[in-house]
Amino acid sequence: MVVISNYPPTNFQFIRRNRKPLAVGDVFALQLPGGKYLHGCIIICGAKTGPMPGANLLYIYKDQSDDIEPKFENLRPHNLLIPPVWTNRMAWTRGYFVPVGRMEVTSSQRLRSHCFWSVARKRYLSETGVRCSWLQRVLNTKFRGSWGLTSYLGIDDCISEAIGLPRISE
């Protein structure tokens, strides 16, 4: 657990702050307790039609590494640790996510479609806010996310649960 000034505690380890603009294809690292790294990629940046204007859609991959540099061949949608997640820039500005590279986001690096559960609308929505078809829901059984902005603390909870770490929020 790390406590930085007045920030809430998290399992993410502080690395360094980043205020540079984010872009589609930015690959980032986050550090877990014990020093291992996970990697992620920005799939949609500054969405106009996401759950909130300016939201970023992230993939976070399951392979843990001793190295902050990713193995780009492992950054594929079949290797996701948690479902795609919408978030803002705070994990970068607070120093928990750091840029470590960039890749072209092609169809082989993306899920064929995205489905997110909207609690308010009580239906599944695509990344553009359109209702998901039956086929999209079937194809995305494993990777259904939530239609809403998830803070870095919420991402911390999802990752902690997925890898068996105690959640800080509990």
Results as ranks from 00 to 15, higher is better:
residue 100 V to K: 06
residue 100 V to N: 06
residue 75 L to F: 09
residue 60 I to R: 00
residue 72 F to G: 02
residue 62 K to I: 10
residue 101 G to S: 03
residue 54 G to M: 03
residue 65 S to W: 10
residue 55 A to F: 09
residue 68 I to V: 15
residue 57 L to M: 12
residue 94 R to L: 12
residue 86 W to L: 01
residue 78 H to P: 13
residue 89 R to N: 13
residue 80 L to P: 12
residue 64 Q to S: 11
residue 89 R to Q: 08
residue 84 P to G: 02
residue 88 N to D: 14
residue 64 Q to A: 07
residue 81 L to K: 13
residue 82 I to T: 03
residue 69 E to Q: 13
residue 93 T to A: 02
residue 78 H to N: 13
residue 65 S to R: 15
residue 85 V to W: 03
residue 89 R to S: 07
residue 97 F to M: 02
residue 55 A to M: 06
residue 61 Y to M: 03
residue 75 L to W: 08
residue 77 P to H: 06
residue 86 W to H: 12
residue 63 D to W: 14
residue 61 Y to W: 11
residue 91 A to T: 07
residue 78 H to M: 11
residue 99 P to F: 14
residue 72 F to A: 02
residue 62 K to L: 11
residue 54 G to F: 07
residue 97 F to P: 00
residue 74 N to V: 10
residue 68 I to D: 02
residue 55 A to C: 10
residue 85 V to S: 04
residue 74 N to R: 10
residue 102 R to M: 11
residue 92 W to T: 00
residue 54 G to Y: 07
residue 63 D to V: 14
residue 92 W to E: 00
residue 73 E to D: 11
residue 85 V to L: 05
residue 57 L to Q: 10
residue 62 K to W: 12
residue 65 S to M: 12
residue 80 L to G: 05
residue 72 F to E: 00
residue 70 P to F: 05
residue 92 W to F: 12
residue 79 N to Q: 09
residue 100 V to C: 01
residue 100 V to H: 05
residue 82 I to W: 01
residue 58 L to I: 13
residue 57 L to H: 15
residue 95 G to F: 03
residue 93 T to Y: 06
residue 62 K to C: 13
residue 95 G to T: 03
residue 60 I to P: 05
residue 64 Q to C: 05
residue 95 G to L: 01
residue 84 P to Y: 09
residue 91 A to Y: 08
residue 73 E to M: 11
residue 58 L to M: 14
residue 76 R to K: 15
residue 79 N to I: 05
residue 91 A to P: 12
residue 58 L to E: 00
residue 90 M to Q: 13
residue 80 L to Y: 08
residue 71 K to A: 08
residue 58 L to Q: 07
residue 65 S to P: 13
residue 78 H to L: 05
residue 74 N to W: 14
residue 76 R to V: 14
residue 67 D to C: 15
residue 99 P to K: 15
residue 68 I to E: 01
residue 85 V to A: 02
residue 81 L to E: 02
residue 87 T to N: 03
residue 63 D to L: 10
residue 93 T to I: 08
